[in-house]
Amino acid sequence: MNLSLVIPLYNEDESLPELADWIVRVVTAHNYSYEIIMVDDGSVDNSWAVIEELSSKNPCIKGIKFQRNYGKSAALNEGFKAALGDVVITMDADMQDSPDEIPSLYDLIMVDGYDMISGWKKKRFDNTLTKNIPSKFFNWATRKASGIYLHDFNCGLKAYKNKVIKSIEVYGEMHRYIPVLAKWAGFRKIGEKVVEHRARKYGTTKFGWERFVNGFLDLTSIMFVGKYGKRPMHIFGFWGSICFFLGFIMSIYLVITRLMYPETGLSNRPPFYIALTIMIIGSQLFLAGFIGELISRNSPGRNFYLIEKKLGINKTSAE
């Protein structure tokens, strides 16, 4: 199969028929073999009934329905599990992403050999103060933290090689940082394409200001887990050792000054309690590293590594 389109949605019953017709026109014109996977994230309107009707008319349209609202990341993760196409394209269901972008995104993956292409809505129709400024800040922060120089990490219109979406797990609010997840999984050829952004035709936005707080927390998590997930002692043990060493040196200094100048006292001096606190913090960090190592060693993915190729290795010889 050439192409899978994964469309997460929540209360978008008005836009789905028009969006499906538009996608079908584009992919049919380019002779793609395709599937459209619509993931209903616990909608309370008639979205699922619309998906069922569309699927009855076109078997290439498939659906997944959540029992309740889990969020966009969960919807994408389930859609990725089901996707069979060589190229997987995601887009939002609100008609703000143009299906006319599909052929150029497909060619960037299949012809130009990119692992992933992220859309850039250079000209936007929702440049409100509450969305534009925080979005620019988080895009800047993500670029600096990840080393991936994209302008719009949160654009819903993206294209992937199938092996990329099968190699990552999207959860929480991580859909904003799929390029970062892909990079940590070893996919380096990540590009960007300016895409058309359309004014919303139906409904209202489903995201509020809290997404920026959650996005910052998820960025911190993904950077930490990606770098230290399999070796937590390297971070906790390092800083624990530094703290304990500083506190220990300070304590030695205080003891020496107490012996040289008995009148200065020891436990009645603020530096004594500062040194003691630093040593306790250092010990706790070091123990956290040990606990992290125990959890890591017993996790199902402790020895799971993404292998791109094997040469002269088969199941029998590996055993």
Score class of each variant (00 low, 15 high):
residue 131 K to A: 12
residue 131 K to Y: 15
residue 133 I to L: 14
residue 134 P to K: 09
residue 135 S to R: 15
residue 135 S to Y: 12
residue 136 K to H: 07
residue 137 F to K: 07
residue 137 F to M: 05
residue 137 F to I: 09
residue 138 F to Q: 11
residue 138 F to L: 13
residue 139 N to T: 03
residue 141 A to V: 07
residue 143 R to T: 09
residue 144 K to Y: 01
residue 144 K to E: 02
residue 144 K to Q: 03
residue 144 K to P: 01
residue 145 A to P: 00
residue 145 A to E: 04
residue 146 S to G: 02
residue 146 S to P: 02
residue 147 G to L: 05
residue 148 I to G: 04
residue 150 L to I: 10
residue 150 L to H: 14
residue 151 H to E: 06
residue 152 D to P: 05
residue 154 N to K: 09
residue 155 C to Q: 04
residue 156 G to N: 00
residue 157 L to C: 07
residue 157 L to H: 06
residue 157 L to Q: 13
residue 159 A to P: 12
residue 162 N to P: 04
residue 164 V to E: 11
residue 165 I to E: 11
residue 166 K to P: 00
residue 167 S to D: 08
residue 168 I to A: 15
residue 170 V to P: 08
residue 172 G to H: 09
residue 172 G to R: 10
residue 173 E to W: 06
residue 174 M to D: 10
residue 175 H to N: 07
residue 175 H to V: 04
residue 176 R to E: 08
residue 177 Y to G: 01
residue 177 Y to L: 12
residue 177 Y to N: 06
residue 178 I to F: 03
residue 178 I to R: 05
residue 179 P to F: 03
residue 179 P to G: 08
residue 179 P to W: 00
residue 180 V to W: 01
residue 181 L to M: 09
residue 183 K to S: 06
residue 183 K to F: 03
residue 184 W to Y: 15
residue 186 G to D: 04
residue 186 G to L: 04
residue 187 F to G: 00
residue 187 F to W: 00
residue 188 R to T: 09
residue 188 R to I: 12
residue 188 R to P: 02
residue 189 K to N: 15
residue 189 K to R: 15
residue 189 K to M: 08
residue 190 I to Q: 12
residue 191 G to T: 10
residue 191 G to N: 13
residue 191 G to L: 13
residue 192 E to C: 12
residue 194 V to T: 09
residue 194 V to W: 00
residue 195 V to D: 10
residue 195 V to Q: 10
residue 196 E to K: 11
residue 196 E to I: 14
residue 196 E to N: 11
residue 199 A to D: 05
residue 199 A to W: 08
residue 200 R to I: 00
residue 201 K to Y: 10
residue 203 G to Y: 07
